[in-house]
Design a protein around this nucleic acid. Sequence first.
DNA 1: GCGCGTTTTGAAATCGATTACATACTCCAA
DNA 2: TTGGAGTATGTAATCGATTTCAAAACGCGC
Lengths: 343, 343
Amino acid sequence: MAPKAATIQDVAQAAKVSTATVSRALSNPDLLSERTRAQVMEAIKTTGYRVNLAARNLRMQRAGAVLILVPNLGKPFYSTILRGISDGFARTDYAVLISDTENRPLADGELVGNFLDGRIDGIVSLDGGISPAALDQCRHHNVDGRIVFACEWVDGYAFPSIQSDNAEGARLAIRHLYDLGHRKIAHVTGPRGNVLTEIRRRGMLEERSRLHLPARGDWIIRGDFSLKSGHDAAVSILAMDPEDRPTAVFCAADMVAFGLIAGLSAGGLEVPGDISVVGFDDIDMAESYVPALTTIRQDRMRLGQTAAARLLERLGSGPVPEPQEELLPVELIVRDSTARIAS
Amino acid sequence: MAPKAATIQDVAQAAKVSTATVSRALSNPDLLSERTRAQVMEAIKTTGYRVNLAARNLRMQRAGAVLILVPNLGKPFYSTILRGISDGFARTDYAVLISDTENRPLADGELVGNFLDGRIDGIVSLDGGISPAALDQCRHHNVDGRIVFACEWVDGYAFPSIQSDNAEGARLAIRHLYDLGHRKIAHVTGPRGNVLTEIRRRGMLEERSRLHLPARGDWIIRGDFSLKSGHDAAVSILAMDPEDRPTAVFCAADMVAFGLIAGLSAGGLEVPGDISVVGFDDIDMAESYVPALTTIRQDRMRLGQTAAARLLERLGSGPVPEPQEELLPVELIVRDSTARIAS
DNA sequence: GCGCGTTTTGAAATCGATTACATACTCCAA
DNA sequence: TTGGAGTATGTAATCGATTTCAAAACGCGC
């Protein structure tokens, strides 16, 4: 069958040139005369030559791969971001490694180890929960310039990061509910310690007070971005005094909104008839859920593509740009889970 | 800062031995005298040496990576399988590449190209829709022995494959509904052409006729494993004559069941009060959905782990086992979306 | 002290590419 | 004719490991 893969030596021999010439034909065709280049190309075709990446990477002192850190692959939210990232690396010769940080937590030294082993050239982290120790190790070994964050980030570290405008998203959600006549607006937060939890909550509080809306401690319900936590929130809300409970809820994630809606329905409250619900993210399911979910859209594809582009800039030979925070616009998508308040 | 990574040469020098000895200290410690080995280990520690994978892989003629083909990363169903696979490769030094075949279809020759480039050593495909042409190319280049399928498979090709016992799952679902008194049972299928669609449908038909249940053409509704298709199915069912419509529906996937339940509720039918629904897969959401979903559990973790193990066997130096189909047991998980028929 | 088998170790080849440096060749002006 | 600039190509070093083969060291019985 296939006896042995052709090497650059075989091509050189077939084309009656040196290996240097073959190499140049591929990477720097302009250096060669038209005739030799044609010869080489012909030889490449007949031998079925493909460059061996291990050899090239060794010689060029690179790994030829980037690592994507995802908090949890099981959350549909991340898939489009991943697609954007893959997309961004598709025309390059970087392979894309994906690692789920929740299901397989990073061992001590593993992060920087990947660099030191020559396994990866760079990292895109969607996880803002990377331990400071791990990041310090990266800095210590001078590879911190090849890390970018997308979606989440780490407070107190100056890595480049691509973020959606989370605060604005929260404000849009509140304003939308306000415009529909709602005044008593609750919020289901994300998990404690998460950067997105904080920024969305602050944006929401900001807008709520700007509009002089009443605020109550028990209208801020701790969640964790999960379906279950939305359902739990529904239970809390159902337990409140009907005369004095929120008429609308802004959830920090679509999944939470789904759980909430299901829980409210099960408890006899209709969405949006009795209570309006806004999500955050606009994952694919939001559109096909019943009721279709009003939510804040993050441009996840672009988030991923941009992150890839930023990392590529840093991996190239050009000057390394200053670490920078990049804010991507978000958009309010009005669907069927919100309605004008019944007066 | 970090001036330059230590190489095996540096370690050799520090330990006053040859590079061969250093290499042996790591891969074949038994060959060395205790004293030298200790010296080398000490030198490794002080220099902070890490083997360079590109160099090792080049020398050992391997890629050090495997590729996972996933139909669609956005479907939560795959995440646990991926976890199982990662898990299976965690203690090895194979890197795991993940590629989404739906969002980034394989270009012609790309699959085998990954092998020829020395980018990967093997493939685990969760996608049964790989083109015959691509598979033939792999066979032609003699790399077909390093491909295993998990979850799905390709009819007509003798690749090793790990599957859940889909037919049995379908039978379990029907029997469960039967035991609850249901006689008029509908089925929402998967997408046309998918191997899972067929096997689940056949298992369901088999059991339905074994139990002498009435069969009607319009009780088999075409779906595609998506939320939306479940919702569409709900619309069809709501349009049927109330006296003569199914009292239970077996869905080919949990997502379909969710869409169906939402659609039925929106149309005024209660689950499980008016109609019982069984899913397939037992994805994480099934438990926290409202109502919690009765479904057929696939052991996705084990599916992934087993697939990884099978591929590893084939990548090792041992004899290559015969391609084999492996069936993993499934389990009926009874929750709240099914109930005894109201008589 | 010698010979022989066994255990340890080292020198150098090897994997397959890229590239610094040297050389050969072409063309044209002096 | 010669020199110099510029272009095209080749030679050989290099990336950092593993492994073959040979040699050194050791133990031991005579």
